[in-house]
Every structure is written in structure tokens, then in C-alpha cells.
Amino acid sequence: MAVHHTIEVEDCGTRFRCPAGEGLLQAMERLGARSIPVGCRNGGCGLCLVRVTQGAFKAGPMSCRHVPPGHTDLGLALACRIYPQSDLRVRLATDLDRQVSRQSSPEGQNGR
């Protein structure tokens, strides 16, 4: 039987089960819960930004505008790119969490 982790969203106390290997947001949406806002589901738009306050997870590719490098280690991540490794407690991003988002556009080779 597949390993499941229990996710608790602190803001509303909602709990749901996320199979290992599935994104936290995708599991929430599939089960019909609505605790975390759903945007692009693919790490780009930043709508589902959360702070993981307890537990271990791996993160998939996310826009650096919403999760600057290094901040995932501090628990900041997009729920659509969070792959739980244990039971997790998360809370919705606060304004302060969003302030760390980069304001500038990326400059890169051939990005002109």
C-alpha cells in the first residue's frame, strides 16, 4: 500500500492525506479541499505559497520570483511543488512571507 502523509493547514485546521510522490496542492484539490488557493499548479504563479512549520519535504522547480533561492530550506514553498516526506503542518503565506519575493525581472543570456 502506498505511503501517505497527513497534511494539516494551520489556518483552518483542515487535514488531508497526501500520497508519497504527489504534490501537496494536487492531493488537496483531488480530495475536494479548498484550504490553499489554486493557481497554475506548476510552480509559476505564486498563488499557493505556504510556510511549512513542521515536517520534511522535497520541492520541485519553482519560480524564483516567489521562492528566492535558499528560502525553501526555511520552509517557504509553493504547495503545488511540495512533495511531503513526512506528516506536514503548513500555514498560508503572510504578507511578510511574500515580501521576500523578488521584485525585479530576471536578466539572462538571450532573455532580451
Binding site: 510552480g43 509559476g44 519560480s63 524564483c64 520570483r65 533561492p69 523578488r102 525581472s105 530576471p106 539572462g108 538571450n110 532573455g111 532580451r112
Partner: peptide, 11 residues
Amino acid sequence: LREADEPGMDF
């Protein structure tokens, strides 16, 4: 398509 650390449109 250009791989970058932030999605969006270059031009």
C-alpha cells in the same frame, strides 16, 4: 523556449 529560474515571456 528558454530555461530560466522564473517563467514568463521574454519578448
